[in-house]
Amino acid sequence: MAGSNPNAKPMNLTLNVWRQPNRSTEGKMVEYKVKDISPEMSFLEMLDVLNEDLLHAGTDPVAFDHDCREGICGSCDLFINGRSHGPEKGTTTCQLHMRKFSDGDTITIEPWRANAFPVNKDLSVDRSAFDRIIQAGGYVSVNTGGVPDGNEIAIPKDIADRAFEAATCIGCGACVAACKNASAMLFVSAKVSQLALLPQGKPERKTRVENMIEQMDKEGFGACSNIGSCAAECPVGISLENIAILNREYISAKATSNNLA
């Protein structure tokens, strides 16, 4: 079957891929060649080609996380040529297409690097730290049932829109990976601002930010130094403004909450 662009010429590429058998064994970069890569392929489809080749050659394929392959589940997490999710702005690895590369290119592929994200194997890392931060307070404490009608509280459209924009975070970890300090502030700020903006989030506003930041620090992420790499590399465009909101929420919570601990 021909591609949708009949002029697209297949490419030959050199890949430098991080291989590491498991968490406790040291890894290294390994060079592979892939041939006849269509520019219409997604980056992960190119890796599929590599893995089929490796499997046929009797070698263990490269492990990497992926799932929906449409940019929303947040599973894929490759550090490509020195950038989170590669060179294209606002794009997850699965939505990056090979037309962004040229024949003969050498592509370096590494896992996210942060102590809070230990490597499972090859390019797969453990991002459960994000889950633990959400568990520390990234929710509104309502049980199922017994809630008011959805239209009971009117929420101004611009507030709803801003909360939505913050809520679109896919939890991929590109922000941590791109940050010089391996800081998780953009991730945490997205959830904190979403719930701080909405009336539903108000009752737990103070405890939420206090607990989430405490957990964030416990996980060993670095501190934010307002560099902005996170927002620049975020595939869904979470804004730095959220970090300012997070800081504000934290300061006001710490200054006024009844929590003495």
Partner: peptide, 22 residues
């Protein structure tokens, strides 16, 4: 109908009209 209410209470940012309703 209960699902919508439940999700709104959880802070799901559904699209809203200018008047603030869903």
């Amino acid at each position: 109908v209960s699902i919508i209410d439940q999700c709104v209470a959880q802070g799901v940012p559904f699209a809203r009209e200018y008047g603030g309703l869903l």
